[in-house]
Design a protein around this nucleic acid. Structure first.
Lengths: 192, 192
DNA sequence: AAGTTTGTTCAGAAAAAACTGTACGTAAAT
DNA sequence: ATTTACGTACAGTTTTTTCTGAACAAACTT
């Protein structure tokens, strides 16, 4: 067999990798990352060595500019990290290989942030409504405001709960409840 | 004071509501819902009565077409439900007022789906790689494939864990761990 | 049966997001 | 000190998404 066969096999390898990369790209929207950047993540994921922006650009057939902004998104999401190698001037990146950590981080940061902002908005809205209740002389307004306050209080309870849930992930307590190791998990199955 | 003052107070009520609606719109992207549809949700949330598409259209200053498509998104996400009132021909919608339920649903469905697809992709990719390992005569290819298989196996573990976590929400077991009531939660705080 | 009312489909317009190439600033190499 | 290599800001282009109004279909009213 000739030399061209190793190329054929390399292509097959590429195809296999591509199957997974495509799926990542399709579902990464849950982390608020675009499909393109998802593919970038997949590319770096399979790379045996940390990659430079130029290598990514070549591998993805996209501009270096896009690699630069894409990798920054991944960096901010803690899904990728920069590494140094002596003698190499270019920036090198590799995926954070602890998926428990990298994906938990994205999840925690995004949700923690949104939850806090929403809680704050509820507080402020309640403040406005309470002030209105005090000031208004119209029963109709007071009734409406009261109803809104009730709704907001219910929602507030929900956000309180959500905050606790997020803490579970932040503190790592979730790993006591659902262990990382599948053997550990199966052991727990018995007394469910 | 004249009649115009109740209008002023109603405007204040509107402003208060708007504070919360704006925040929802800003953060609802986490549920893969667009800001506009988030505002729609907020509008229906504060409405004392179930709303028709025409009312929404008027309240939002947007086309009825947009209300139609927007409400469908919310409906599919179980964040809003259709209600019937006798004598009224138009479709009426109200928000699902159990936020634990409505928001858990979106979360569960989206993540369950993505996780399953990713797990499947891993299986298939592994299949392709294993086949390649069998067929190839090039050591270099085999080494690469082996490395990829190892990475995928690690990721697979993560997805296994994630599946279990999602189940926690699906089965409601999460509510034993983090109770809905804030009093219950504080009680647990003591032995943390 | 004819005429309304209501929600949705669809094509096009408007807005937003993603992507690119050029240009520039910084830091290393000569 | 000059040149070269590298990453990123920015402006413009392309692509995608969102939004709208007109036309349509189904269901209700008379």
């Amino acid at each position: 067999m000739g030399q061209e066969n190793i190329i054929k096999d390399m292509e097959k390898l590429e195809q296999a990798r591509n199957r997974f990369i495509t799926e990542i790209a399709k579902n990464i929207y849950l982390y608020n990352i675009t499909p393109s950047v998802g593919r970038l993540y997949g590319t770096v994921f399979f790379s045996e060595e940390p990659m430079t922006l130029d290598e990514m650009s070549k591998a993805m057939g996209m501009s270096k500019t896009s690699m630069s902004t894409g990798i920054r998104s991944l960096l901010e999401a803690d899904m990728v990290e920069r590494v140094w190698e002596r003698g190499i001037r270019k920036d090198l990146y590799k995926v954070e290989d602890d998926w428990y950590k990298s994906f938990s981080n994205v999840f925690i940061n995004r949700w923690r942030n949104a939850t806090e902002l929403n809680k704050q908005a509820i507080e402020e809205t309640k403040g406005l409504l309470n002030r209105l209740m005090d000031e208004t002389e119209y029963e109709a307004v007071r009734v409406k405001a009261e109803k809104d306050l009730k709704k907001l209080t219910e929602v507030e309870e929900y956000y309180g709960w959500l905050t606790e849930v997020i803490s579970l992930f932040e503190t790592g307590a979730i790993f006591d409840i659902v262990p990382k190791s599948s053997k550990e998990r199966n052991k727990n199955k018995s007394y469910e």
